[in-house]
Write a protein that binds this DNA or RNA. Sequence first.
DNA 1: TATGAATGAGAGTTCATTCAT
DNA 2: CATGAATGAACTCTCATTCAT
Lengths: 230, 230, 230, 230
Amino acid sequence: MIPVPKTTPKTTPGKAPGNAPKTAPRTARSPAGGGAASDGRRAELLAIAAGVFAAQGYDATTVRRIADEAGMLAGSLYYHFDSKESMLDEILSAFLDELWAGYEGVMAAGLGPRETVEALVTASFREIDRHLDAVAIYQREARQLASSQPRFGYLADSQRRFERLWLGTLERGAAAGVFRTDLDLRLAYRFIRDTVWVAASWYRPGGQHSPEEIARQYLSMVLDGVTVRE
Amino acid sequence: MIPVPKTTPKTTPGKAPGNAPKTAPRTARSPAGGGAASDGRRAELLAIAAGVFAAQGYDATTVRRIADEAGMLAGSLYYHFDSKESMLDEILSAFLDELWAGYEGVMAAGLGPRETVEALVTASFREIDRHLDAVAIYQREARQLASSQPRFGYLADSQRRFERLWLGTLERGAAAGVFRTDLDLRLAYRFIRDTVWVAASWYRPGGQHSPEEIARQYLSMVLDGVTVRE
Amino acid sequence: MIPVPKTTPKTTPGKAPGNAPKTAPRTARSPAGGGAASDGRRAELLAIAAGVFAAQGYDATTVRRIADEAGMLAGSLYYHFDSKESMLDEILSAFLDELWAGYEGVMAAGLGPRETVEALVTASFREIDRHLDAVAIYQREARQLASSQPRFGYLADSQRRFERLWLGTLERGAAAGVFRTDLDLRLAYRFIRDTVWVAASWYRPGGQHSPEEIARQYLSMVLDGVTVRE
Amino acid sequence: MIPVPKTTPKTTPGKAPGNAPKTAPRTARSPAGGGAASDGRRAELLAIAAGVFAAQGYDATTVRRIADEAGMLAGSLYYHFDSKESMLDEILSAFLDELWAGYEGVMAAGLGPRETVEALVTASFREIDRHLDAVAIYQREARQLASSQPRFGYLADSQRRFERLWLGTLERGAAAGVFRTDLDLRLAYRFIRDTVWVAASWYRPGGQHSPEEIARQYLSMVLDGVTVRE
DNA sequence: TATGAATGAGAGTTCATTCAT
DNA sequence: CATGAATGAACTCTCATTCAT
């Protein structure tokens, strides 16, 4: 359930067209200058929108509700964004960009299979901690968006890339005798993937456990099982 | 393999209040028989609705879409159901009723902790197989419904009951030396719970693996881990 | 606010066409024979409909509500009546027929102006007592029906006839020195007319006062005033 | 002639609860001023709505019809009002507020029973002249609204208060020997009440008689009767 | 930058009515 | 005579979006 970034600074071959980096207002009267202040407001509004999308679902969220929380009128949001959909787009692609930046760091480190799994899972929990709303939105909406809206094709791309990365790692591990070979690897892949990301549905930042601690325990269960070894 | 009774005809205690059996069309004098014919149509329509809800999300589903798939007009649905919401209600509560019937069969068998976990997981995968749409809907909508609509309070009740059942089993197992004691049991509970149910997002009935086979592999990973034991 | 009968046995010149006496079912399978039993059911259903129309207003009354009160399904009413509107039509025209039968009896008696007024008012209160629902419906709906639906043109006809009858009587009385001549007679007409018929909004049959007693007191006020005469 | 103060700015005690001043469009931060411009549009729309409600009846009036007359689309009305019902609410409560302001002025004047009756009737006809549509709506819908919708409970309150005021006045007059004592006072109350208000069904502002002239003639009939005194 | 007012499409729902059984 | 199931039009209301100011 995890996708490709919109803008990977280094290598993003086959990047979908019309997917240029999101920019500030595009109206005739768009603000002059670089708009650092403007970008601050944008980010603020996106955070608010993400919060509401995560809490109520994208469809059930009205643009007025977002505006209310931002202390403005619904129409005013359209100075900052093209549409409700483009807010969602920005939220999701910003999250994916960061996620993949993290993953690429892991892969670039050239670790062994088990260590790679540990690093990926830990990176994922960190991302959940930092982009909780985006992750929750992603979990709930991605499948549908990817399959029905061309604009969100990058979600499916990311999904595929994600699967390749994980399956590859698992296969390496199985070949190296680190992971069990009596399992259907696709099942194992889904098992680990879901196990990690669904945590977003109950995780609350600043809670009892740090993301790293949660990652540690999850890894312990996934890798070693919950039963006592004799 | 693990024996899991399908449905226990005996009792269904702990049934959420306000969850009375949904009734058929509002006639002045309801038909003398049980309304088997009518119920057939109802069930058919509910299955169609569940399919659309699962595919598009409850909010994004229009009542006209459901009617289209059923080959009737939107208004005609209201002969059978009070509202879109009550269709959702029936779908979810029918699913939960069956699920709990299965769970109660398991608990009544008086198995040991490990075998109980195995039986519960297997029962769950069977339920996913039988009520795939309902499970998918549940996953996507339950939290929000439970927290914002009194009518769906039984979802929260079920959730709590579910947690008690699982946590109790895990605690018994830990006390008995079957499960590891170095884990946060709540984390373990969530881990297993999510692990199982999210499978609904990719599972397709009639696919490569039977529900029992999937359960077996999941259990193997959860209980023993994915790494090779020395 | 009071109209012409649909079927006056003697003189009804200018009677609107297409206004034939309401009859029993008109379907292909209409019941054979005179249908005395059928007429009983019709009358019963009309009484029920009148009750609901009076209580909730014609527009706010659903055909299902009427059917519920009659212990049948909404569709079944259409065996007995063409439409909701034709029920209303029958209720109103039956009432007007009776009303005018009474009025004609009064006029045929050849009384003096004061005695004619007394007899008309008394006849009116008797009609309120017998056709309370119909009167209430008439009060609420007649103006609109008469002005917008050709089918109900007879309501306006009756209205005009009613005005002629009353104004004529008042004029006779004024000419004879029985009634005051310093009043606008149209105002006096409306005053008496409204005074009587609005009573339907609070009158309940079987209450403290009989229709005749209420008529007596009303007449006393209208004719002599509420202040003490020296 | 009888002096009747228009509006008493002082106090409006006995105002029905839950009848708070209706508010303007739901902005995030309501406009700093009083919203005079907005109120102008609101009042305009309410006048249009009142006209249609009065002409067709509340139930038979579609929101589209109101919008048409206002030169806008149906949905646009919802920028100004919560619902069709709240338009009705505002129309009725504005009318009642004004009516009671007038009545309180009369009662505060400390007149004798006969003069009080005269002043109340005159004030009522003035109100019919000023709020014709609202009065017509009130006549047609009040009973039902009051009895079935809690939101309109203030209608019943007003009714009761109205009865107390009139009955009290009549009783004072009877005790003082001004009004006849051989009448059922409740009947007399209803007689006068209905007599006055039903005038709204035929009264047209700017017609032959001024409200005051109509009041004079009505009072003359009610107080002295229509027959010639010897 | 934001507001206030509006648009227009479409949502869920109601309801009089029809008709085969 | 009545039922059960459906139709189809209309209704109230919601909401993303636009745009002059």
